[in-house]
Design a protein around this nucleic acid. Structure first.
Ligand code: NAD
Ligand code: NAD
Lengths: 209, 209
DNA sequence: CATACATTGTTAAATAATTAACAAAGATTT
DNA sequence: AAATCTTTGTTAATTATTTAACAATGTATG
């Protein structure tokens, strides 16, 4: 297998979904699943499931299907989730707090190691046992905790500054929740998540003519 | 113009971005912008900008560009944002609270009208002046407030039940934050937002081989 | 052990989306 | 007012993604 050539972004997202179904199936004692089962559970076509998996290798048995646990492990490996990742959240506001307390990240191998803010009233406090550090100490802490992933949850006006500091400190992948376009050097993986735009997608389709 | 034929989903998302840039430009007194300006600011190609707009009509002047305010208004109309939308959030947990307090939705014409939860300790309380109602009263309130949009912020196990109730009450568009596939009838617009999957997209690219 | 059945992996075909190219239209310069 | 420069809208070419088809491979059955 493996990441030699360009694979559709959508495939990566679907692998996440598949893996969630597979771990559930395994928990329920369903040891073998077919592309049809996976497809049904995740809302895609069976051909799509097989195509997605085929990018990375052969994981099934013809006439039988896939072993749930085994395929789960393969997918987690493909996604880089066969290890723990330390994550920094920048911005201890509404969104930063919600994300900091989210148990779901842990279940997938993500550790929110620290939170950064520039508000003196917040620095030194904790959010469910995670320390809030000053924005100034970001570089130092990112190195201490070996953090490679960062989440930007600050106002749009500060997003680029935060991204620059994260990258300089050694962060390699960033999720930006601020509704603004930021730029990073070539080799940094950047993902923008625009929640208002999601609502607007709905209204686009609901508004007639 | 208009929505006669299938337009790429990605186009809709980009229109949101363009509109954010345009309102900023207009505020700064930049009355005319080119596809190149828009492209630069939003991280796409100028050809893409023109193509996206061309789906809906002719909004510019050759040799000149687009009037910022005018194009902004057109795009907002296309997105169905030339009016107010009432929104219900189901789940007054970490995420529901963060979303309820988010000012950015208001700026785009979204009103969080009410929040629903089934925890007796939360029902009757308020989150920044928005009432938390019982899950049982959902149908009633959705009708009272003429709510057409719903946000699901409950545990995965409850997501399908919540979706069913929203749809039955008259909601036409749903954003689902629970990491699970839910199904709704044909004419309902459903959008799944999987935040853990966004992190996994990063790790996919960061993990070598 | 031959036949029927199930399901994968792969190749081909069909669709969709992006990028590039350029004529058309307007502004600016000389 | 002719020539030059800009920038759009549109068409064509390219690239990417999804869907469909099916041969290959395995299991189950009589
Ligand atoms: N709250 C939501 O549900 C929501 C939804 C969609 C998008 N967003 C976006 O996410 C971002 C955060 O939203 P929020 O609601 O949490 O905002 P918020 O105002 O509640 O919190 C922002 C936090 O960032 C801190 N901050 C500001 N500048 C900083 C800097 N340079 N370094 C470090 N910290 C800094 C502030 O002190 C504050 O604690 C915004 O860009 C917002 O548009 C939020
Ligand atoms: N917190 C985050 O940052 C985050 C990030 C990604 C995804 N999510 C997803 O969003 C959802 C909510 O996450 P959270 O962290 O806010 O969880 P949470 O446990 O903090 O809150 C869930 C809320 O839903 C309520 N609830 C449960 N069943 C209900 C029902 N049937 N009707 C009405 N209310 C009900 C609970 O009482 C609780 O208040 C989950 O599916 C989670 O996986 C959350």
């Amino acid at each position: 297998m493996f990441k030699k050539f360009k694979i559709p972004d959508a495939t990566i997202g679907r692998l996440s979904m598949y893996s969630r179904y597979l771990i559930e199936a395994d928990k329920k004692g369903i040891t073998t699943v077919s592309s049809q089962h996976i497809a049904k559970a995740t809302g895609v076509t069976p051909a799509q499931v097989r195509k997605d998996l085929a990018y990375f290798g052969e994981f099934g048995t013809r006439g039988v299907g896939y072993n749930s646990r085994e395929l789960y492990n393969y997918i987690m490996k493909i996604l880089g989730l066969n290890k723990q990742w330390s994550v920094a959240i920048v911005g201890a506001g509404n969104l930063g707090r919600a994300l900091s307390q989210y148990k779901g990240f842990n279940q997938r191998g993500f550790n929110i190691s620290c939170i950064f803010d520039n508000d003196p009233k917040k620095i030194g406090k904790k959010i469910s046992n995670i320390n809030i550090y000053s924005f100034d100490s970001l570089a130092e802490k990112v190195k201490d905790f070996n953090i490679k992933l960062g989440i930007i949850a600050v106002p749009a006006s500060a997003a680029q500054e935060v991204a620059d500091k994260l990258v300089k400190a050694g962060v390699r992948g960033i999720i930006n929740f601020a509704p603004v376009n930021i730029t990073v050097e070539e080799n940094i993986i950047l993902r923008r998540v625009d929640l208002a735009a999601q609502l607007e997608y709905l209204t686009y389709y609901l508004e007639e003519i």
